[in-house]
Structure formats: structure tokens, C-alpha cells
């Protein structure tokens, strides 16, 4: 069972990282007096996203659903968050690399091209969606139903086992047939 104090701590850490991300996305353009400042901000931002990914996966591993072996169910439930976070991480890194590459020599230079503008729009839009989905997932993982045995979990589990059982029985029967048929042919 997830402890309330632990959950509060993890949730506050996640929100701290999210708010840092939002802050850098909003004001990094203003803080470009020196290219190093922006570089450090961007590096910390990318590390924060990475940390958030690690934390959310650790939270997944802590759930009863995961420990019961229903990894697919859990990943299916939160696949939007996982995919979006990965996409946002990739977009962020590519945008940061591009911008830093252009601004490294002269940070107050006008560097915008259509490509950079497009990447910028997508990266910032993904940031908003990431913020929403990540926040939702983090809050949702506080639901005690993920950390205890319940009726729906048992139903899912039996369903999975039944499917697995059907696969296994069909596999076994096919194996038996495969073994018996050569004998029949030889006889």
C-alpha cells in the first residue's frame, strides 16, 4: 500500500519538476544574456523531463496492478502519457540543440527560420499536453484502487489467465499433434 507521506513527497517532486519545465519554456527566451545560462537551463530542463519519466515508471512499478503481472493493462491505461512524454522529450532535445547551435556565438542574434519556428510551436504545444497528461497520471496514481486487490483487477486477471490458458492449451495440442503425426505417417 502506498503511504500518504511518500505519495505527497513524490507528487510534490513531480510538480516541482513540471513547474520548472513550464518556467523554462516560458522565460528561457528572456534569459539569454549569455549562451551558457540558456544552455544550463536547457540541460536541467531535459534532465527534469528524464527524472519525471523515471519517477512515473517507478510509480507504475509500485502499483498492485503491475505487481500482479498486468503490465499491459497499466501501460495501456497510461500509454498516452508515456508516448507523449517520450515525444516531448525528443522534441525538447532537438529544439534545444538547434537553438543553442544557432545562438552559441551570439546569443542576441535573430535566428528564426520557418523550420525553427515550426519546431518551436510543436515543442511548446507538446509541453502543454505533456503537462496535462503527466499531471493527470500523477494525480491518478494516488488512487488507492491501484494499490490493492479489487474485483475488477481479479476479473482482468482471470481474463488474462484464460486467454493465456487458451493459448497454452492450443500450443500443447498443436505440439501433441505435431509429435503424433510423424508416428502415424511412419506406421
Amino acid at each position: 500500500m502506498l503511504q500518504t507521506s511518500n505519495y505527497s513527497l513524490v507528487l510534490s517532486l513531480q510538480f516541482l519538476l513540471l513547474s520548472y519545465d513550464l518556467f523554462v519554456n516560458s522565460f528561457s527566451e528572456l534569459l539569454r544574456m549569455a549562451p551558457v545560462v540558456q544552455l544550463v537551463l536547457f540541460i536541467i530542463q531535459d534532465i527534469a523531463i528524464l527524472f519525471n519519466i523515471i519517477i512515473i515508471f517507478l510509480m507504475f512499478f509500485n502499483t498492485f496492478v503491475f505487481q500482479a503481472g498486468l503490465v499491459n493493462l497499466l501501460f495501456h491505461k497510461f500509454k498516452g502519457t508515456i508516448i507523449l512524454t517520450a515525444v516531448y522529450f525528443a522534441l525538447s532535445i532537438s529544439f534545444h540543440v538547434w537553438v543553442m547551435n544557432l545562438r552559441w556565438k551570439n546569443s542576441s542574434r535573430f535566428v528564426w527560420t520557418d523550420g525553427l519556428q515550426t519546431l518551436f510551436v510543436f515543442q511548446r504545444l507538446a509541453a502543454v499536453l505533456y503537462c496535462y497528461f503527466y499531471k493527470r497520471t500523477a494525480v491518478r496514481l494516488g488512487d488507492p484502487r491501484f494499490y490493492q486487490d479489487s474485483l475488477w483487477l481479479r476479473r482482468e486477471f482471470t481474463q488474462v489467465r484464460r486467454n493465456g490458458g487458451v493459448c497454452l492449451s492450443s500450443y500443447i495440442s498443436s505440439q501433441i499433434r505435431g509429435v503424433s503425426s510423424p508416428n502415424l505417417a511412419s506406421s
Binding site: 513550464l22 516560458s26 522565460f27 502543454v128 496535462y132
Partner: peptide, 16 residues
């Protein structure tokens, strides 16, 4: 530029 930044921050918060 400051206004653009502020607008993004508030828009992101409002959208979420």
C-alpha cells in the same frame, strides 16, 4: 518579449 512569455505561461496554465 516579456509579454509573449507571460502569455505563453498563462495560456499553458489555462489550457491545462
Amino acid at each position: 518579449y516579456p509579454f509573449q512569455s507571460l502569455l505563453y505561461l498563462l495560456l499553458a496554465l489555462s489550457t491545462v
